[in-house]
Computed example of a mutant assay.
Amino acid sequence: MSQLSVLDLPQLYTKPSAEAILETLALLTSAPPSWDYESDSAANDGSNLYTRKDNEPRAVRIDPEGVTRYLTSIVSNSLRWIQDEEVKEEIWNQASLRLSERSGRTARGDLTRQFTIPTSDGSFELSIHEPALTGDDLGLKTWAASYLLAKRLHLFHLTTQGQHNKPRVLELGSGTGLVGLAMAGLGADVVLTDLPSIYANLARNAEANASVLEQNGGTIRTGVLDWNYPRSCTLIPKSVIDTNSDGEVLSEKFPLILAADSLYSPDHPRMLVDSIVAWLSEDGSARVIVEFPYRDAYLPEIANFRQRMTVAGLQILDQGEEKGYDDWGDASKDDDGLVTCWWSCWGREVPEQNP
């Protein structure tokens, strides 16, 4: 792959054409990461679970040294040799966007990502929209643990092709909905839930992927479930964004509950486990599958979650670790955002048999 230096790009002192500048700015685009990468270890076990960021076009790579300064020079230049004022505005706008892309996810505006989800005999794609990040609504972003769990789901063999009774699944703290949508894409009937502030984008992603899920035999419903009130969940009708509208009060329990990257407060382990207890069916085959990143600040929350799950009569049936990326910081750093995540599958305790 060829690599260009900033000095190989059109220099403003030469008064390059507007077309040349716009083409260069397009070349400098840092695309939203797809995270699709098959490492040697992933290739060996067939899971395709390790990921990396894919932030730059494949045909030509630009040496990042000096790119920020180059973009800043365009934004601050009057571009007097270009007569069309609208074109100049577009150049300044594109240069500003390229700068924001290099300032991490918090500086980006709205974006839509394509995620490839493996199945037992192929794969399918999901389109996930993320609004610009504002305030504390971290559920508006897709996190590494969610993508890793979405890619791992097929390994649990929860669905089979042509299955008459589809698995009923509840996702808690769905965020952008990637995990639950992936489960539906595997042929399950899934309910996605989150807070009212997250719901509009969650419903948007459910609608955007409806045709893919239908083709794969799955279904999606969306609702509001506040963990402060773990036993109350309202399903919102399709095409309705107002969470204050009348909806169906959910009453059924579920044999499978999913959750990913949902522990970032000392109260969350208690709230999440209370919600799991409220909605997990009493069936002996009921399962809970979760995945959380090992972030130093929240390691006590993971330990608290494990303890509370055990007290609730659930035990780990299977677990493991894997690595992925969060695109939170500087997109130009290949190792930025690398996190190790812990996944686990829980079930009800099996009483010991007397000899």
Results as ranks from 00 to 15, higher is better:
68 T>E: 09
91 I>F: 06
78 S>L: 07
89 E>R: 13
85 E>Y: 02
70 Y>W: 13
93 N>P: 00
98 R>F: 13
77 N>G: 03
101 E>P: 06
103 S>V: 09
73 S>T: 15
96 S>K: 01
106 T>C: 00
99 L>K: 03
86 E>P: 01
83 Q>D: 15
88 K>Y: 07
67 V>Q: 04
99 L>I: 15
79 L>N: 12
67 V>G: 02
69 R>K: 09
97 L>D: 15
74 I>A: 03
68 T>G: 00
67 V>S: 03
71 L>W: 06
103 S>G: 10
101 E>N: 08
69 R>T: 14
73 S>V: 06
71 L>F: 10
89 E>P: 09
70 Y>E: 08
76 S>C: 03
96 S>T: 06
104 G>S: 07
67 V>N: 04
96 S>I: 02
100 S>K: 07
81 W>Q: 10
89 E>S: 14
104 G>L: 09
78 S>Q: 09
83 Q>T: 14
95 A>F: 04
83 Q>W: 13
69 R>S: 10
95 A>E: 09
91 I>M: 06
93 N>A: 11
104 G>N: 08
95 A>V: 05
85 E>K: 00
71 L>R: 00
105 R>Y: 12
71 L>A: 03
76 S>K: 03
75 V>Q: 07
105 R>S: 09
96 S>A: 08
98 R>Q: 11
83 Q>C: 09
89 E>V: 14
89 E>G: 13
104 G>W: 08
106 T>R: 00
70 Y>L: 04
87 V>L: 14
82 I>H: 10
95 A>L: 07
81 W>Y: 13
87 V>W: 13
68 T>Q: 02
91 I>P: 01
67 V>R: 00
91 I>T: 07
79 L>Q: 08
106 T>Y: 12
78 S>R: 06
101 E>A: 04
82 I>S: 05
94 Q>I: 08
99 L>T: 11
77 N>C: 14
92 W>E: 13
